[in-house]
């Protein structure tokens, strides 16, 4: 797989928190790579550094030491700043605060207008972006009357219209109700699958993380563990110890397996959990 983002030994310190000890650093020597077309979830507590890291991917923050390369471009390269931001779009947590214009389609056009796309082309891109997030019918509406999930999809459309290779979403569902969360997560998985856009999803909902190709767990400004969802959630003990959530299905099977029942190491959702238990039961019957 082709590497897209490379994070190399990155330390980051917020202004005003200078100090030598590691607690003064929001990021503590982070190393990771994100591949083209991958769907990566980054999970961790508030203060684990996950949101700080998210803002490094498109040069909003620059590493205090260390480097980040986006498609080979160093994020510190000021001359190529807009090139980086065109490649990597960032969606923020609060849906209200990232919508600039008073009409949906004009907000979606905002980014394209900034990078000097010709008018006719913007129109095409905006329409396509709105269709991709299933908000085309609302193109002439005011964002005020929309639900949180719809607003967040507008924000995503505004990024898609700039035709990025990667979208970073910084806790996009934290302020939404369950329906809004489903809408947003459905939208980003579709974008990843159908348009091949690389997705980096920052979240603390584990039910969302299990949908990713790869999960990276952050703790105290560093990567605690990473791997496929199955690999990561198999480490229930480690996650629990750091007071991170585990889906109830995963926890149940883990506990049962811990009592000596022969069950798979890790399940991610209720279907897998039920299947595993039924398989176990039928085996038991066979063995009498």
């Amino acid at each position: 797989m082709e590497e897209f983002i490379e994070v190399k030994d990155v330390y980051f310190q917020y202004e005003g928190t200078e100090g030598e000890d590691s607690s003064a650093f929001a990021l503590n020597g982070v190393n990771m790579t994100i591949n083209k077309g991958e769907f990566v979830a980054i999970v961790g507590h508030n203060g684990s550094g996950k949101s700080t890291l998210a803002k490094h991917f498109n040069s909003i923050y620059l590493p205090t030491t260390g480097d980040i390369f986006v498609d080979g471009i160093n994020t510190k390269d000021d001359d190529r700043l807009f090139e980086i931001r065109k490649k990597v779009g960032l969606v923020l947590q609060n849906p209200d605060n990232q919508i600039v214009a008073g009409i949906v389609e004009e907000d979606v056009a905002f980014g394209c207008e900034n990078i000097g796309i010709p008018s006719k082309e913007i129109r095409i891109r905006v329409d396509n972006a709105l269709k991709a997030v299933d908000m085309y019918d609302y193109r002439t509406h005011s964002p005020d009357k929309l639900s949180g999930g719809q607003k967040q999809r507008i924000a995503i459309a505004g990024i898609i219209a700039m035709e990025p290779e990667c979208i970073v979403l910084d806790e996009p569902t934290a302020m939404l109700d369950p329906q809004g969360r489903d809408e947003v997560i459905h939208t980003i998985t579709e974008l990843n699958r159908n348009m091949g856009i690389t997705i980096i999803l920052i979240t603390h909902y584990m039910e969302e993380a299990v949908l990713a190709d790869r999960v990276i767990v952050m703790d105290s400004g560093n990567v605690l563990t990473s791997g496929t969802p199955k690999e990561v959630f198999a480490q229930v003990e480690l996650l629990k110890q750091r007071r991170l959530d585990v889906p109830q299905a995963t926890e149940l099977i883990y506990k049962l397996a811990g009592c000596g029942f022969e069950l798979p190491k890790c399940v991610l959702n209720e279907e897998e959990c039920v299947q595993a238990l039924i398989k176990y039961c039928s085996l038991q019957k066979k063995n009498g």
Binding site: K55, N58, I60, F82, R85, K86, G89, L90, L92, N94, D96, N97, Q98, V100, E105, E106, A109, F110, G111, C112, E113, N114, I115, G116, I117, P118, S119, I122, R123, V126, A155, G158, I159, M162
Partner: peptide, 23 residues
């Protein structure tokens, strides 16, 4: 909100009126 908005605008390559087109 102003802080958030400024960041969101930066993320979308806002650079004042320079070289700006309109839909």
């Amino acid at each position: 909100r102003a802080n958030d908005l400024a960041m969101a605008m930066e993320c979308r390559c806002y650079n004042g009126g320079k070289n700006r087109t309109r839909m």
